[in-house]
Computed example of a mutant assay.
Amino acid sequence: MLSQERSMNLSSLNVHSIETMGAFDGPGIRYVLFLQGCPFKCQFCHNRDTWDTSINKIKTPEEVLADFNRYKSFYKHGGITVSGGEPLLQIDALIELFKLFKSHNIHTAIDTAGATFNPNNTEKMDELMRYTDLILLDIKHMDEGSHQTLVGASNKNVLAFARYLDALDKTVYIRHVLLPGITGTPTQLNALRNFLDTLHNVKQIDILPYHTKGISKWKTLGFEYALMDLREPTKEEIYEAHDILKTAYIYKK
């Protein structure tokens, strides 16, 4: 009964898992909270078990802070990153969580694909951004049709979210998964670079080479993996992506 009552509380978080020593999810060593549920259906997702929005583990912001404090000596130059799934699905709880963490002067970051952003209703997002130090924004694909195929949804609100963050001057790290022949083509990479050149708040660009480690998880869960024939990118393809996306890019200081 207690868990059911807490699941109805908008300030409680539906948690998938926790990583206590995250080194790739923002500056420093970080406490990474993975939330349950995602509206995107990425064909290459390595966290297929996070899509389901049913209740997994319910935690209050206070419980998350207490757990964070168990390891806080490691986080002097880090903080908390909330990932998923798609953390913005739980925006009410995320606001309460970050409000609590900022009251303790802890650096906050969100790892998101911007899947739930609505440019016509930003009231809750405006509030969340007041307590958010960094956005790790995963841009999947610049082409609308290809994004629809790859993710199962439009990219229009994702790009609108990037422009919204730019208008706020909110610090952003761009993340881009490099899929050979899909997101890793010169045409796609140049389109992404041209878009990034219109922004003024991007401090870092992270290129994430596709890997096949997630296939076994799909199989274990009983799902068919759509990209079985997709290979991992070569070193040359990774170097080319770095060259296109990063050469002469002036990061925000």
Rank of each mutant, 00 (worst) to 15 (best):
residue 115 A to Y: 02
residue 115 A to C: 04
residue 115 A to G: 10
residue 117 F to Q: 02
residue 118 N to D: 15
residue 119 P to V: 03
residue 120 N to R: 15
residue 120 N to K: 15
residue 121 N to K: 13
residue 121 N to T: 06
residue 121 N to I: 14
residue 121 N to A: 05
residue 122 T to D: 00
residue 123 E to R: 10
residue 123 E to T: 08
residue 123 E to N: 08
residue 124 K to S: 02
residue 125 M to N: 06
residue 128 L to T: 05
residue 128 L to W: 04
residue 128 L to F: 04
residue 129 M to Y: 04
residue 131 Y to T: 03
residue 135 I to A: 00
residue 135 I to Q: 05
residue 136 L to M: 12
residue 136 L to F: 09
residue 137 L to N: 12
residue 138 D to R: 02
residue 138 D to I: 04
residue 138 D to E: 06
residue 139 I to N: 02
residue 139 I to H: 07
residue 140 K to H: 12
residue 140 K to D: 06
residue 141 H to F: 05
residue 141 H to Y: 09
residue 142 M to H: 03
residue 142 M to N: 02
residue 143 D to L: 02
residue 143 D to K: 03
residue 146 S to I: 15
residue 146 S to W: 15
residue 147 H to E: 07
residue 147 H to T: 12
residue 148 Q to H: 15
residue 149 T to K: 14
residue 149 T to R: 15
residue 149 T to P: 09
residue 149 T to Y: 08
residue 150 L to Y: 11
residue 150 L to P: 15
residue 151 V to W: 13
residue 152 G to F: 13
residue 152 G to V: 14
residue 153 A to N: 14
residue 154 S to R: 08
residue 155 N to F: 00
residue 156 K to W: 12
residue 157 N to T: 15
residue 157 N to Q: 09
residue 157 N to Y: 14
residue 157 N to F: 11
residue 159 L to G: 11
residue 160 A to C: 07
residue 161 F to N: 00
residue 161 F to D: 01
residue 161 F to R: 08
residue 164 Y to E: 03
residue 166 D to Q: 12
residue 166 D to V: 03
residue 166 D to A: 02
residue 167 A to M: 09
residue 167 A to F: 07
residue 167 A to R: 14
residue 168 L to E: 05
residue 169 D to S: 10
residue 169 D to M: 04
residue 169 D to I: 08
residue 169 D to N: 11
residue 169 D to A: 10
residue 169 D to H: 11
residue 170 K to A: 01
residue 171 T to I: 15
residue 171 T to D: 14
residue 171 T to N: 15
residue 172 V to D: 02
residue 173 Y to H: 12
residue 173 Y to M: 13
residue 173 Y to T: 12
residue 174 I to A: 00
residue 174 I to G: 01
residue 175 R to C: 05
residue 176 H to G: 01
